[in-house]
């Protein structure tokens, strides 16, 4: 009797130990940290702010982002504190509100926070327009190459290879530097030219697998046209790949826009752009480092969030794509 209970007990403790091993006890701080690492909470907040700032920019500007005040050049950030200017009566020409120049003024006396908010809109344009155009072009070419195979595949793959070996920053510099009239559309168009090749490769690989699947053959037998099969049967199967590639390539696209704007070949004046703001402040780095610091920080946080989000999405949707850098 005693022996029997003794024999039963160890097996119980073993199973308990096994359970304990799978569910390790963690303190709340470690739990919170793990949650932050696993789920894109911080990136979600940053990207949410980006969308809010980009969409509602017109209502959020503390001050007109284009308005110059040469007497306030490189004004230090107020961080919402009262200053000698905000103490002045409201009708005084030098009066500024407490929340104006929250992050200081740039070398032309423009409000840096307002220009960061305005830059968020440009960044959103890059994400939506340039990436969107590249996505449509790349995905449709990928589906065509993968579905038809043969000559189509060869031509499209070679075109992608050729396109990738063009030093693109050079082309962009040449075009953007000389194109008249100066509009932001030139850069957005150029960026969409850089955006499409990654889509072709991955979508093509998917389409190649899908085209020999039974449901595609069945559709073919039922008399569906090639266009219909590609749009209705093949394309939906590549959606998760498209999503992952999009979220992974958006960061570098935003960085390219910023780099071009930094070199003076990107978003033209007077539109604000983070890359341009950093470029404008480089001569003031000694006395007013905040001019380059905050726009660059915004850029860094947004790109990092997109990358983190992209990594997370890839692990969720399609771990096969891990090779993608």
């Amino acid at each position: 009797m005693a022996e029997a209970t003794q024999a039963a007990q160890p097996s119980e403790t073993t199973s308990q130990r096994l359970q304990g091993a799978t569910r390790k006890k963690r303190n709340p701080v470690a739990k919170a940290w793990r949650f932050l690492i696993i789920y894109p909470v911080v990136p979600g907040i940053v990207l949410g702010l980006l969308v809010i700032a980009g969409v509602g920019a017109d209502y959020l500007y503390p001050r007109d982002p284009i308005k110059q005040s040469l007497s306030l050049r490189a004004l230090s950030p107020t961080y919402g504190r009262a200053s000698e200017f905000s103490e002045l009566p409201a009708d005084h020409p030098q009066h500024i509100h407490r929340y104006e120049f929250f992050l200081g003024a740039d070398p032309l006396g423009r409000d840096i926070l307002s220009r960061i908010i305005g830059g968020a809109r440009i960044t959103l344009y890059v994400a939506v327009i340039s990436l969107g155009t590249g996505l449509l072009l790349g995905a449709s070419m990928g589906v065509i190459a993968g579905y038809f195979g043969g000559w189509w595949d060869e031509a499209i793959t070679r075109a992608v290879d050729m396109w990738r070996s063009i030093p693109f920053i050079l082309v962009a510099l040449v075009v953007a530097a000389f194109w008249d009239p100066k509009t932001p559309w030139v850069v957005l168009f150029l960026l969409s030219l850089v955006a499409w090749p990654p889509f072709v490769r991955q979508v093509r690989a998917d389409a190649l697998l899908l085209r020999s699947r039974d449901f595609v053959l069945a559709a073919r037998i039922a008399g569906a046209s090639h266009t219909r099969i590609m749009v209705k049967h093949v394309l939906p199967g590549t959606f998760s790949t498209i999503l992952v590639v999009a979220s992974l390539s958006i960061g570098s696209l935003i960085l390219t826009e910023a780099a071009l704007s930094y070199l003076g070949a990107g978003i033209p004046d007077p539109f604000p752009s983070w890359g341009k703001s950093v470029s404008e402040g480089r001569g003031y780095i000694k006395d007013a480092p905040f001019i380059i610091f905050y726009p660059g920080l915004a850029l860094f946080l947004v790109v990092m969030s997109f990358n983190f989000f992209g990594d997370w999405l890839r692990d969720k949707l399609d771990p096969r794509l891990r090779q993608l850098v």
């Binding site: 960061g251 570098s252 910023a258 930094y262 480089r282």
Partner: peptide
């Protein structure tokens, strides 16, 4: 490494 804009890093 992938998110730091090189021009910003350089200036910093």
């Amino acid at each position: 490494g992938q998110a730091l804009p090189s021009f910003w890093l350089g200036l910093l």
